[in-house]
Amino acid sequence: MDITTLKSKKSLIWWTVIFTIFILLIFLPFYTQGYAVVLLISILVYVILTLSWVMFSGSTGYMSLAPAAFFGVGIYTSALIGKVFPFPITVLVGGMASFILAILVGALTLRLKGIYFAIFTFGLVMLIAYSLLFFEIQVTGTRGRFVIVMDYNTIYFYMLGIFMLLLLTTYLIKNSKYGLALRSIGQEEDAAAHTGVNVVGVKVMTFAISAFFMGAVGSVMATKLTYIDPFIAFSTTYSFMPVAMAIFGGTGSLYGPIIGAAILTYLEEILITKFAEVYMLIFGAILVAAILYLPDGLVGFIQKIWRRLMERNHVDT
């Protein structure tokens, strides 16, 4: 069998697996009840945030700590206009608001490199949270807001829809000329400019696309929270967790961040229920171990073992 048929057979298997998983995910709410759906919503939130984060930061190497800002903008948009507009419009507006914010912030700050960019994006989260708090207390005279309530199954289907769209977008970017340009920026930005890449344009656009998905998932998440204030909406956890999950899963592939986010979310759930007082401690220890011993993430580690096994089989036969 030559390489191309082997490759097409392999990708056929992949597509079948992905298709089956999605069918299972779509029908899941009909044969389970309660907790499974709630857990999957939590997992999907983090999967979407992590995958969006990897879309920009994973390939360009610009460490963004802004997910919480874009997520929060989505949440707040939902609280502001959710009662007025049909929900799909709210989700779209939430995503677009984050998209526009990312274009503004990106155009201003994507000249910064390394730690400066990371710190600025983190500062952005704080800036928005405190400005909103000031506004709420001084102008509206309240601290937080109520959001429209939806049942868990509806929330779940919205999340699943966003996830599918994100997966498709990431896949298309990865396999296009645009994805090649993104990777080249991550490796040697000056050379990318030399070869004719509009470096600033590509960075800002990708930053904005990833922000769109963070905002969209935020506006759905708001309905699960039911009550929000600036510090619930702009919780820094949503900036750090996607980074940790991406590193844990491995940023080299599409499924690495998904697996990383799924495992760590589930782990968080277990730790919170079983060891509520020390869960952050255990969680932190696991992350440190992962960074030390899994430099290419969980997926990279599994791939390495797999390759070694294959080579051994090769020698045996």
């Binding site: 990777r183 080249s184 040697e188 000056d190 050379a191 030399h194």
Partner: peptide, 9 residues
């Protein structure tokens, strides 16, 4: 073609 090659390693 830049000095020092500047490839994408």
């Amino acid at each position: 073609i830049p000095e020092g090659r500047m490839l994408f390693p």
